[in-house]
């Protein structure tokens, strides 16, 4: 498989607790991979390891052919991995527009040189285009702290896109949204695929991923228990037992 992200036998332990236990899978170019599993399965821990937030205890992460495992967090961001957060982490003291502007890669890489080469008007236009894609253009000058839940999640996606990423990691982007917001978000995420090399979408709600994800990886108790096409994976007895059986509606 022609992979952009390779996760090879990655483990993460916190003291005596094993949050991830030898998880391996790959994300192909152009793919939208769904990562599912019950609460506490280790989905968010995996995102934190793949985005450089936590160093892996064991195993290796390769992104675009580059060994990432022991690099500092900012090298993950600079090499083209962007993410959102399950517990929304916007810069709440800034405006909506500033949350996007702050992420532009040319300034992030050399903050002090930005004094010399900032193109204010063009940058605001770029940020407004990203906000428009996330249906937030009319909120640009509001404080980020004032946004309701659903819009705050959309702003996190806009901020991640501003880094011009190749891989986007979305950690439960639909959590807390109502049905209409969820459907809009599904459309918008589908619309992002053309501009990104790959998307990994963590989701608790399987229905959100059906028809959106190309493949699914299922985690349970820190281990990968299934991987494959969504319809196949969701029929596997182990998955049904671990996940759907416990959470059937």
């Amino acid at each position: 498989m022609n992979a952009t992200l390779k996760i090879d036998a990655v483990s993460k332990r916190f003291g005596g607790i094993t949050a991830l236990d030898g998880v391996s899978f790959e994300v192909a170019h152009g793919e939208l991979l769904g990562l599912i599993g019950p609460n506490g399965a280790g989905k968010s821990v995996l995102v934190n390891v793949v985005s450089g937030f936590y160093p892996a205890t064991a195993g290796a992460i390769t992104f675009d052919g580059r060994a990432m495992t022991h690099l500092p967090t900012h090298q993950f961001g600079r090499s083209g991995i962007a993410r959102t957060f399950q517990n929304i982490r916007l810069f709440r003291r800034m405006s909506v527009l500033e949350n996007v502007l702050v992420a532009f890669p040319e300034h992030v890489r050399s903050p002090f040189l930005s004094l010399l080469r900032s193109r204010r008007g063009a940058e605001i236009d770029r940020a407004m285009a990203l906000l428009a894609r996330m249906r937030l253009a009319d909120k640009a000058d509001l404080s980020a702290a004032s946004l309701p839940y659903g819009e705050a999640r959309r702003l996190e996606i806009a901020r991640a896109l501003a880094t011009n990423p190749k891989l986007l990691l979305l950690d439960e982007p639909a959590a807390g949204m109502n049905d209409r917001e969820t459907e809009e978000l599904r459309e918008d995420i589908a619309g992002l695929r053309a501009d990104l090399d790959a998307i990994v979408l963590i989701e608790h709600n399987v229905e959100f991923l059906r028809g959106l994800a190309d493949r699914l990886v299922v985690l349970d108790y820190g281990r990968k228990i299934a991987e494959g096409l969504p319809d196949d994976v969701l029929r596997e007895p182990r998955v049904v037992e671990a996940y759907l059986g416990a959470d059937d509606e």
């Binding site: 985005s51 450089g52 937030f53 500092p72 967090t73 900012h74 993950f76 961001g77 600079r78 962007a82 993410r83 957060f85 982490r89 810069f91 702050v102 992420a103 890669p105 992030v108 890489r109 903050p111 901020r159 880094t163």
Partner: peptide
């Protein structure tokens, strides 16, 4: 930490 995730060397 979030600044770091965006690529800022804090």
């Amino acid at each position: 930490h979030v600044a770091g995730a965006l690529g800022v060397n804090a």
